[in-house]
Computed example of a mutant assay.
Amino acid sequence: MSTTSPTLARALALMEVGRYEQAREQLGRHLAEEPDDSYAWERLAGCCNDLGDFMGAREAAREALRADPDNADAHLQRSEALRSGGLPYDAADAAREAVRLRPENARCRFMLSMAIRSYPGGGSLQEAYDVALEAVRLDPDYVGGHFALYLVARDTDREDIAEQALLQALRIDPGNVYARGELAKLKERTKGAKLPELAKEYSETLSLRPDNDDIARRLYSVVYRLIQRTRWFALLCLLIAALFARVFPTGDDPTALPVPLGTRLYAISLMGLVWVVGAWRIYRKLPQGARTGMRAVLRRIGWSRLAVAQALWGTSLAVLVTAPPWTERGWLQALVLVGAVPLVLTMWVQRAFISAD
Score class of each variant (00 low, 15 high):
M1K: 06
T3G: 10
T7A: 13
A9E: 13
A9G: 03
R19S: 12
R19D: 15
E25C: 00
Q26P: 00
E34L: 04
D37F: 03
S38M: 08
R43C: 05
L44Q: 14
C47G: 07
D50F: 04
G52Q: 06
A60I: 02
A64N: 08
D70L: 12
N71R: 11
D73N: 13
Q77T: 00
S79D: 07
D90F: 10
A91G: 05
A106T: 05
A106Y: 03
A115P: 07
S118D: 15
S118C: 09
S124Q: 02
E127N: 00
A128C: 05
V136K: 06
R137Q: 11
D141A: 12
H146Y: 01
F147M: 14
Y150V: 05
L151D: 14
D155H: 12
R158E: 08
E163T: 09
A165R: 05
A165S: 15
L170D: 07
R171M: 02
V177N: 04
G181R: 10
R189M: 04
E197C: 01
E197Q: 14
E197M: 03
A199P: 01
A199I: 06
E201K: 01
E201D: 15
P210R: 06
D211S: 13
Y220S: 13
V222L: 06
T230Y: 10
A241P: 05
V247M: 05
A256I: 01
P258D: 14
L261G: 11
L261I: 14
T263V: 15
R264Y: 05
L265H: 08
Y266P: 00
M271Q: 15
R281F: 08
I282E: 15
K285S: 15
A296M: 02
R300K: 14
I301D: 12
G302R: 14
G302I: 03
L306Q: 12
L306K: 11
A307P: 10
S316F: 11
S316G: 15
Q333A: 12
A334W: 10
W348I: 07
V349S: 02
I354E: 15
S355Q: 08
A356F: 07
D357P: 00
